[in-house]
């Protein structure tokens, strides 16, 4: 990189000798001084806690049992042997794949429907993206209210639709509770897919479609042979971002189901929260979060590296 002329060639007028030295120093190490505050904060609140928790992994750190004795791999074994931990992990994977798939299909359909300009498009856009600006806690709470039995409007509206009274226990029964979670998540995050895919669609050169039309190629074929390949990098990006957020699913579970009925809707994050902050087995929860982190890091490495390649291209 080009290092430009150091500023001490032309000192600011009136600067004393020591302040000139300081400013010369600041100018020489400028690029490092600029990243220092942010980097220190990240080090202090991410790297240091992670290192600290590395130690917590191997000792007893429990608000119910005093002392920090070395326990070896005991904490990890506790998590691995807990059937609830593995079922929470499986549920997390299944739920995130489900919601991301649905959000992708709906988002793509919406983006295709919105790609042409029309009157009132601005207002329609604003309405479509509103859920993105709402706290997930409120989303969970709103759906809990909406799906309430027997006085929530969801069962009533469904009843009107099918012509006889409907009485679904949305948050009290499997499989309805999973459907309720998926609905709430899809409600909040489909706009995310939509916005990104729409930007991707709008960037596809129009002449490709004009050429296809001249050749008399039909809508579906244009979609398969022009739209999808052109959109592929954006699809990767949207899926990566969404998937890595979906696996953190916590807020909606917390408000909508509380993990229930029983432990049917424990996700990885909710499980770790329960172990750590409701039962106060902090070292076990820490070991569990390290397992989760390691599993996730593999996915992050693969997906984000690919993203950087896409972006560099």
């Amino acid at each position: 990189m080009v290092q430009l002329a150091p500023a001490d060639i032309l000192p600011p007028p009136g600067a004393g000798r020591s302040s000139r030295l300081v400013s010369a120093f600041a100018d020489r190490y400028f690029k490092w001084l600029m990243i220092a505050p942010a980097a220190i904060l990240i080090l202090a609140l991410s790297i240091y806690p992670l290192l600290f928790s590395l130690w917590v992994n191997f000792v007893n750190y429990d608000f119910q049992i005093p002392g920090h004795d070395f326990v070896g791999l005991q904490n990890f074994l506790q998590v691995i042997q807990d059937p609830l931990a593995s079922s929470a992990l499986v549920l997390t994977i299944l739920l995130s794949l489900t919601v991301v798939a649905i959000e992708f299909v709906l988002g793509l359909a919406l983006a295709l429907a919105m790609v042409r300009t029309f009157r009132g498009r601005g207002i329609v856009m604003s309405l479509l993206v509103m859920p993105l600006f709402i706290s997930p806690v409120i989303v969970g709470q709103s759906w809990a209210l909406f799906l309430q039995r027997p006085f929530g409007p969801a069962d009533y509206l469904l009843g009107q639709l099918v012509g006889h009274p409907v009485n679904i226990s949305w948050v009290g029964e499997v499989p309805w509770v999973y459907i309720a979670i998926v609905i709430a998540d899809v409600w909040q995050w489909t706009p995310f897919m939509f916005v990104i895919l729409l930007a991707g669609l709008a960037a596809i050169p129009q002449h490709l479609y004009e050429a296809a039309e001249l050749d008399g190629i039909g809508g579906l074929q244009t979609f398969v042979h022009i739209t999808l390949p052109q959109l592929a990098p954006i699809i990767t990006l949207a899926l990566t971002f969404r998937l890595l957020d979906a696996v953190k699913l916590f807020d909606i579970i917390f408000m909508l189901t509380g993990g229930g009925p029983g432990t049917a809707t424990y996700t990885a994050s909710f499980y770790l929260y329960q172990i750590g902050f409701q039962q106060f087995h902090l070292s076990i929860a820490t070991a569990g979060s390290w397992i989760f982190l390691i599993l996730l890091s593999v996915v992050i490495m693969v997906l984000v590296r690919r993203l950087l390649r896409v972006e560099a291209a």
């Binding site: 990240i42 991410s46 982190l293 984000v304």
Partner: peptide
């Protein structure tokens, strides 16, 4: 990349030690 990777850290993995600290 290191800064970006922080964005994808699951909060539950760091909030426990942050809480203790």
């Amino acid at each position: 990349f290191w800064v970006l990777s922080q964005r994808f850290l699951p909060p539950v993995a760091i909030v426990l030690p942050i809480f203790l600290l």
